[in-house]
């Protein structure tokens, strides 16, 4: 019965089949229709792919996590080593920077000075004698002679250290401004008065301010610079500040005051010896 029906309407069945087939082709190929062979396939396979992919990823993640942990541990150790290495490097770099800065300053100082100067490093101190003398690593071979003034940079300022008292071929000795045998002519710009300071020795960190008339008012903290009247040091180099004024002795004609040196002799490492003043040269 069915085969009879089929054979009777064979043309229609074939036509129907081919019709559906051709329409399907168009449907699947059309850009207007969202369904394409690829999309249909992907849609059918998506759930399987999703489940399988999830299981796979989970399992792979679990397996990888063990290896990953070891890798992370190794990486961490490596980073720690690197960190230590870089820390050391950093410290070294910082030291080098400081050293470089210091040398640069020395060079700049030397270049900027209007004097014929020679830089020198302090190689000996005499703390027992209140830093009354210092030894430097330059001597006659470098043109250092006795009587040459010495200054240093301290806290970015320039201050008097002393004068060369002795000079050997390779080294020289500085008689510092704390030495009681050294007297330096000074000028107090605020009071507009010239005077003299002299080291006290005896473990005192002060210098005596001499020959300032009592009629001249002195102020604590006033700066004392080298005098233009003296020929020992170039003018306008800082010596120190007025730190103490003794007013107890009313009979005195001059002030009894003390200057605290600007330079801390215990802290400086390099000094500059003025070999010849350019002004004097002129």
């Amino acid at each position: 019965m069915f085969s009879f029906f089929l054979s009777k309407h064979r043309n229609s069945f074939i036509f129907g089949f081919l019709f559906i087939l051709s329409v399907s082709f168009m449907s699947f190929s059309s850009t207007k229709f969202s369904l394409t062979f690829k999309e249909v396939g992907e849609t059918i396979l998506y759930p399987f792919r999703f489940v399988f992919g999830g299981i796979w990823d989970g399992a792979a993640g679990l397996v990888n996590s063990f290896g990953e942990r070891e890798k992370l541990k190794e990486a961490l150790e490596q980073r720690e080593k690197e960190l230590i290495f870089y820390k050391r490097q950093f410290v070294e770099v910082e030291d080098l920077k400081k050293e470089n800065e210091k040398l640069k300053n020395l060079l700049n100082y030397k270049q900027l000075e209007s004097f014929d100067i020679e830089s020198a490093r302090i190689i000996g101190r005499d703390p027992e004698a209140n830093f009354s003398s210092l030894t430097i690593d330059k001597g006659r071979k470098d043109g250092i002679e006795a009587g040459m003034p010495v200054f240093a940079y301290y806290n970015e300022g320039k201050g008097i250290v002393g004068i060369i008292s002795e000079s050997s071929f390779f080294t020289a000795k500085i008689k510092t401004i704390r030495n009681k045998d050294l007297a330096v002519g000074i000028y107090l710009p605020y009071a507009e008065i010239h005077g003299v300071v002299q080291g006290l020795g005896d473990n005192k960190n002060f210098m005596a301010l001499l020959y300032i008339d009592k009629d001249i008012s002195l102020n604590l903290g006033e700066k004392a610079i080298t005098s233009s009247e003296g020929d020992l040091f170039p003018k306008n180099i800082l010596i120190g500040t007025v730190s103490y004024i003794d007013t107890t002795d009313k009979t005195r004609l001059t002030h009894k005051a003390y200057i605290k040196p600007y330079i801390n002799l215990a802290q400086i490492e390099d000094v500059f010896v003025i070999k010849k003043s350019l002004e004097a040269k002129e």
């Binding site: 043309n11 074939i14 036509f15 081919l18 019709f19 087939l21 051709s22 329409v23 399907s24 082709f25 168009m26 449907s27 699947f28 190929s29 059309s30």
Partner: peptide, 27 residues
């Protein structure tokens, strides 16, 4: 109809048109 479908399908293979359209029309 079979020839129409086959001819159209062959044409579709080499045509830049919508695949199946020649098969459909010629069928």
């Amino acid at each position: 109809q079979v020839t129409g479908f086959a001819a159209g399908l062959l044409e579709d293979i080499y045509s830049i048109e919508l695949f199946g359209i020649h098969a459909f029309v010629k069928l």
